[in-house]
Computed example of a mutant assay.
Amino acid sequence: MRTFRNRTTVLTAATTAVLALTLTACGDNGTGTKSDGPAAASKPAASTAQTGKDTKDAGTTGDAGDTGTAQAAGTKTSGGATTAAAKGTGGSSSSSSASVCTTKDLKISAATQDGPPFTHLVLTAKNTSGHSCRMEGFPEVRFLENARGIAPAVARSKPAAPVVLTAGAPAYALVKLSDGGMDEDVEAVKDFSVTLQGNGGMAVVKAPGSEGIAVDPAKWATGYWTYELRAGADDF
Rank of each mutant, 00 (worst) to 15 (best):
S94T: 12
G80C: 03
T61W: 08
T103P: 04
A111Q: 14
G79K: 12
A85I: 09
D105P: 12
S92K: 07
G80Y: 10
K53N: 09
K56P: 00
A70K: 02
A85D: 05
G88H: 01
S78G: 14
A125I: 02
A98H: 00
G90M: 03
G59F: 09
T124V: 05
D63K: 09
S129D: 14
G62Y: 12
D105I: 04
L121N: 10
Q113K: 09
A84D: 13
T69N: 11
I108P: 01
G68Y: 00
Q71R: 07
G80I: 09
S92V: 13
A86Y: 04
K104S: 15
D105Y: 09
S109R: 04
S95C: 02
A58V: 13
A98C: 02
T69F: 10
C101Q: 04
D54Q: 14
A58G: 11
S93W: 14
G90K: 10
P117H: 14
S95H: 05
G62K: 10
T124E: 12
T67D: 11
V122C: 04
S109T: 15
I108T: 03
T75L: 02
V100F: 05
A125F: 02
K76C: 01
T67C: 01
G74K: 13
T102K: 04
G59Q: 11
G68N: 07
T102A: 10
A81Y: 02
T124I: 00
G79E: 06
F118A: 07
D57I: 00
A70D: 04
A81D: 06
D105G: 14
S109E: 07
T102Y: 03
K107L: 08
D105H: 15
K87Y: 09
A58E: 12
T61P: 00
G68F: 00
H120P: 00
T82Q: 07
S97T: 15
V100W: 04
D66M: 07
P116T: 08
S99F: 02
T77V: 15
G115C: 03
A73G: 05
S95W: 00
T55C: 01
A86D: 07
T77P: 00
D57S: 12
P116D: 08
T83W: 05
A73K: 02
S93V: 07
S92H: 06
P116M: 02
D66V: 06
S93C: 05
H120L: 04
A98Q: 01
G62F: 12
T89W: 13
T55E: 07
K126L: 11
A72Y: 13
G62C: 07
